[in-house]
């Protein structure tokens, strides 16, 4: 009990500040990183660089939205990279055969199907989301390989508007903001002001209490994982326009960073706390970090090791600071 009466240490006070107002220290960290970057290479900082960073961060931030929403309930969605890859690959390979709109419709339908399977497993069979989404990701990847073998690919067509969205700029700003800004506003609005968003927090904070208050938790889970896959599918198309190649592992490297962005952004992996605002900052922080590592001019292997270590260190530090209070 004596610890309670002592003045809180600087670390606990910082933790409390971060728990109450998580965006503040995140913004500071982001600018600190940009500062370090400026010292490393003053020439790099420009409006063009800023636009580029934002452009690269957007697909990551959108996949991290899936993690944020599922993590609010205490879950996770590790199939987002796979779903994004599938929709991108299918859009690009079906478009020459069927035309662009049907290709997109089929690709998104596949994304929704994966989401429904995830939701069914988590909501009704009560499989842990980690296992469920990893499992469906594996199955979906297998299906993609089968699809690749049996559909006679007449070539790859990446729709023009996706290229415009993914790589184009207007007034110096990346066009993908035209998709992302409304998306981010919608997510932030929904988590605060919609019944569905509030229920995510309620289930994450205390599923039993939510149930006793009349919430049919399975409905929320089913909707949530379907929504998550749909977001991942849309992200896959945007990513296709940005990378401009259709590969079988297009968005897979984004899986872990998407989780890290949400966690760095202050969303608790145990559910009930966090929000999308922090996740966007988390995605920007990770993107700036990547740029820094690229500037270090070390071999790819070393860069990956360093990136993994930094993600783990920052995540561990932020969990420690915010979960304590």
């Amino acid at each position: 009990m004596t610890a309670m009466t002592e003045a809180p240490s600087a670390l606990t006070r910082l933790g409390r500040l971060m728990a109450d107002n998580p965006l503040l220290p995140l913004t500071l960290l982001l600018f600190l990183l940009i500062g370090v970057l400026a010292v490393m290479n003053p020439a790099i900082l420009s409006l063009f660089w800023a636009g580029n960073t934002i452009k690269i961060a957007i697909p990551l931030a959108m996949l991290a939205a899936c993690q944020t929403l599922t993590m609010l309930t205490g879950g996770i969605d590790l199939s987002v990279g796979t779903v994004a890859t599938i929709t991108a690959f299918m859009t690009a390979t079906l478009a020459p055969l069927t035309g662009v709109p049907p290709a997109i419709a089929v690709a998104l339908a596949c994304a929704v199907l994966v989401g429904l399977v995830n939701g069914f497993g988590v909501a009704i069979c009560r499989v842990h989301p980690l296992i469920m989404t990893l499992g469906t990701a594996l199955i979906a990847t297998g299906c993609l390989l089968v699809y690749q073998r049996y559909v006679i690919a007449t070539g790859v067509l990446i729709p023009d508007f996706l290229i415009w969205l993914g790589t184009g700029r207007s007034l110096g700003l990346p066009n993908s903001l035209a998709l992302f800004v409304p998306f981010a506003i919608l997510i932030i609005w929904a988590q605060r002001r919609s019944g569905f968003g509030r229920l995510l927090y309620a289930i994450g904070a205390n599923e039993e209490a939510a149930r006793l208050s009349g919430v049919r938790v399975w409905q929320v889970h089913l909707t949530l994982y379907t929504l998550s896959s749909l977001i991942a599918g849309v992200t896959g198309m945007l990513y296709l326009g940005q990378i401009k190649t259709a590969s079988l592992s297009l968005a897979l490297p984004l899986d872990l960073p998407s989780v890290a962005a949400a966690v760095i952004g202050g969303t608790s992996i145990f559910g009930g706390r966090g929000g999308y605002g922090g996740t966007i900052l988390g995605a920007l922080i990770l993107t700036v970090l990547t740029t820094m590592l690229t500037l270090l001019q070390i071999p790819e292997g070393g860069r990956r090791i360093l990136f993994g270590l930094i993600i783990l260190a920052v995540t561990a530090l932020f969990i420690r600071l915010t979960e304590r209070s």
Binding site: S194, G195, R198, L199, Y201, N206, A209, A210, S213, G272
Partner: peptide, 26 residues
Amino acid sequence: HALLMSRSVRENIAVPLIARIRNWGA
């Protein structure tokens, strides 16, 4: 068993108001 300990008083009291699907919107 009854409370969302990490949420506000308002959110705790309002849970039944948003529990049903038709109240999932704004």
